[in-house]
Design a protein around this nucleic acid. Sequence first.
DNA 1: CTGATATCATTTGCATACGAATGAATTTGC
DNA 2: GCAAATTCATTCGTATGCAAATGATATCAG
Lengths: 148, 148
Amino acid sequence: MTTPLALVGDEPDGIYRLQDQVGFVLRKAHQRHVAIFASRIADLTPPQFAALARLYEIGETSQNQLGQMIAMDAATVKGVIDRLKSRGYVSLQKHDTDKRLLLVSLTAAGREAVEELIPLAKTITEETLTPLTQKEAAQFLRLLGKIA
Amino acid sequence: MTTPLALVGDEPDGIYRLQDQVGFVLRKAHQRHVAIFASRIADLTPPQFAALARLYEIGETSQNQLGQMIAMDAATVKGVIDRLKSRGYVSLQKHDTDKRLLLVSLTAAGREAVEELIPLAKTITEETLTPLTQKEAAQFLRLLGKIA
DNA sequence: CTGATATCATTTGCATACGAATGAATTTGC
DNA sequence: GCAAATTCATTCGTATGCAAATGATATCAG
């Protein structure tokens, strides 16, 4: 154990501790989650899975639109989709009338992969929340949702 | 507003919603924090600041040790330290007896930078936690600390 | 209808982040 | 005291993540 966390606004001009800064702890929590994810799903990254899962929910969309729905900017989503395409999980197609749009959709293999991985993804969420009781976990998810 | 968050373990074989998965929300929260950080401290990244702040706390250490204290692996910390060195914020020196160690320490400019930035860093934490009440923020930091 | 604006995808450059491999130096085990 | 194991720093490859610039296309305003 380290020293207890200070309350926000505590010690207005007091000492500065990195481990009390939300960004630092957020970064570590994210790293831990990514490690848990990798240990359970070795051949996809969390962003790649997010793209597949969203496509599974909503069906075909444009690349940009998909990016907005999974919180990725245009440059990032392009790389993710490129890699999913090279694996055969998604297929790309130009929009009929609006020639700017690149439509992304799941292939049969992509759909199968998502269906297999969803139970694992739920396990990953549970394992990440293992340090918390059920009550704490619900509370944490509620507050985290407000922060995000 | 989207649909309310499911409790953990809710709907054992129910629907899967990306926005209920802790990793996805954690990633978004982290992104939001990085954006807030960049808006207040334009010329340093959060990992760079973490390195400077830790060096300020503890003084000279080896590059690897520093990495462990700010949750960065050896490859990552090397890049961060290289960039801080090229800005004149840290200086590097070989250990006298143990020739494997690369000692990192703050320069005068680095120390000044940290002292100027610490108040801003506190503001950044506060702004990140703005969506929460004081009570919620304290609760959130407590639970986040357990997750990390 | 047409010039200004906006949107979409792409590309480039930079900064984490991690696994794996490597070489140098140190410590351990026996 | 010496071979084996460990530690440290570095390098390479891959994958986000974002800002900024660009070109193609679409929409809007007058």
